[in-house]
């Protein structure tokens, strides 16, 4: 505790680094996964076989990207892109790739989970394609997407600390530094702060879900149609 107070400035700086980098990766990953996942979902429903194969291909690429272990990806990416290892940009790209890889499949799954009967009924009421996509399909897929966004958020915050091994500064720096100095307090502080960041992110996601989808709790509680 004394150590933490004495090094307040350092901790604030590292936490801030951790927060903004992971927030950018999570949001960017989601922003990319939404259109691509939607494309995979739509292509999968196409009557044309090549389109359905393309859809499967997109999802498989997501799955393969996801299989690549984090530290190797972190060192390979900068070399591929001609960036220095220390670059924050390369870790942002690496973690965005993971966030995208997890989200893209669950966006497609979420859209598929919307009951066809509700979509049919919306069409029968006279929704145009675009209206239906934006005001019926998207919100109804929301809860499943939200659940996967929570997984992405936790894993991104936790994975980011690996970046410390290549020299990027964030809460992970407390682990490498603490280990080299044989100083457990520093490591423990780092773990606690990382978990707190993960919890705060999770709380923000859950709260925005409740705000944006007030019906989702009721629907779950009531068992739905």
């Amino acid at each position: 505790m004394n150590w933490a107070l004495a090094n307040r400035d350092l901790l604030v700086e590292l936490t801030w680094q951790h927060v903004w980098v992971s927030a950018v990766c999570i949001l960017l990953g989601f922003a990319l996964a939404l259109p691509v996942g939607w494309f995979a979902y739509a292509a999968n429903r196409s009557p044309r076989r090549p389109m359905r194969q393309l859809s499967g291909g997109v999802l498989s690429i997501g799955s393969i990207l996801y299989t690549i272990p984090s530290l190797p990806l972190l060192v390979i990416l900068p070399s591929l892109l001609g960036l220095p290892w220390l670059s924050v940009l390369s870790i942002v790209i690496a973690l965005t790739v993971y966030a995208f890889a997890i989200m893209v499949r669950s966006v497609a799954d979420a859209l598929r989970s919307v009951p066809p009967m509700v979509l049919d009924s919306a069409t029968a009421c006279g929704y145009s394609r675009t209206q239906r996509a934006l005001t019926v399909t998207l919100p109804l897929a929301g809860p499943v997407m939200l659940a996967s966004l929570r997984v992405v958020s936790v894993s991104t915050v936790s994975l980011l600390s690996i970046g410390a091994l290549t020299g990027v500064r964030n809460l992970g720096s407390l682990f490498t530094n603490g280990y080299n100095r044989d100083f457990t307090t520093e490591i423990a502080t780092g773990i606690v702060l990382t978990v707190i960041v993960a919890l705060v992110f999770d709380a923000i996601i859950v709260a925005s879900g409740r705000l944006l989808m007030p019906w989702s709790r009721v629907v779950r509680a009531g068992g739905g149609e």
């Binding site: 936790v154 457990t184 490591i187 780092g190």
Partner: peptide, 19 residues
Amino acid sequence: TGALRALPTLGLITLIVLL
């Protein structure tokens, strides 16, 4: 299981080894 997932790998490994 959710809480365990939030634990940073590197932090846990270094801490357990030092302890």
